[in-house]
Design a protein around this nucleic acid. Structure first.
Lengths: 189, 189
DNA sequence: CGCGCTTTTTGCCAAATGGCAACTGACGGC
DNA sequence: GCCGTCAGTTGCCATTTGGCAAAAAGCGCG
């Protein structure tokens, strides 16, 4: 729980009573490898804070290929990207890449904290914005680089992730085929 | 000014008095083609709302090549991406691709509106988050696609932009060379 | 240890893209 | 009208990446 508090306190100040209130809404959840936290076609009814493990966000393109759009590592929030406009079904899956432990909030509870705690809603938007900015800052430069450079960048950005992620997921995230990524790895050694 | 009001009202409700207050802080600005609205190395001191024209966000990579990271079209806000954490210098330029007309706020005024108007800060964060989500949703799928598909997607996403943007900017945005993009265009016709 | 299963690596060749330089076409100044 | 400039196009060839299939390596399990 402390990890969650530390995360939240980056975005505003909360007193002990508020922290307790937040804690009272959180439920621990363990996910096995490959289990889904959210599924495409459903409206996200919960918000998760990842304590341990790796999640990925993926979808299927129009050729039916599975594309990994993003990885989520420890001590970050995850929910439907469309979390701001409520009630929209996600087009993406959130899936456990490894065994995961999370703290989960019912979306209803999560949103209702805004009624009780002044500034909660703003904090949530700050978190979202910061999170998105980081993602964007990482993805944007990738477009203009070749596959080897993209892989190197990934190693820099997520040093603790590379060896926990199957090659195929990483390849689709980087926008190369699995075989190409395998060759890239070889050349780098 | 009505365009700005319409934009703002997407993110919360504001009464006439509040709109007037906002309007009183806005200054019109005309930018000639290629003029900079923001420059790398400076702290952004203003926030702009684009009434007419096209802006781009660009930076220089470690080979000294200029990369266009993004385009901004009419009726959107622009400021330093790091706008949330104040006081950081930008690493990017915001430049006029065509002649532009903007409404400009001193960042100080923009931020101080939060003191006068309850909910302003949350609205700003909502705008930021929505804006970033849209960008991310557009850029993410591009990684996994070939250049032709990326170009087609761009045409769908920004139908009014393609013919107002120099080929070289668009090419670097799409992550291909200018010559390749030129060939892609030819093949599509 | 040996067996199936999945993941990763390789080989082979085709297709896409880059790099460079020359060519073309539009436009404004004179 | 001529010339310089700049954006866009094209040709030629090298390099990168994709597609496919087979081989190799890792891994759990009896």
């Amino acid at each position: 729980m402390d990890e969650l508090f530390a995360y939240l306190l980056q975005f505003g100040s909360l007193n002990q009573r508020q922290l307790d209130l937040i804690a009272s809404k959180a439920t621990p959840l363990a996910l096995g490898k490959d289990a889904y936290f959210l599924e495409a076609g459903h409206v996200a009814r919960r918000v998760g804070f990842l304590l341990e493990g790796v999640l990925r966000i993926c979808y299927y393109d129009n050729k039916g290929d599975e594309i990994t759009r993003n990885f989520i590592d420890e001590h970050h929030l995850t929910t439907n990207l469309r979390g701001l406009e409520d009630g929209l079904a996600s087009s993406e899956y959130v899936q456990a890449v490894t065994e995961c432990r999370l703290l989960v909030f019912a979306k209803r509870d999560w949103d209702e904290l805004a009624h009780t705690m002044v500034g909660w809603s703003e904090m949530v938007h700050k978190m979202t914005a910061k999170h998105l900015m980081e993602k964007l800052a990482r993805i944007s430069p990738m477009m203009a680089q070749d596959a080897t450079t993209r892989y190197r960048e990934f190693l820099n950005n997520y040093p603790r992730l590379a060896n926990r992620i199957p090659l195929s997921y990483l390849a689709s995230f980087l926008g190369v085929t699995q075989s190409s990524l395998s060759r890239i790895r070889k050349n780098i050694r």
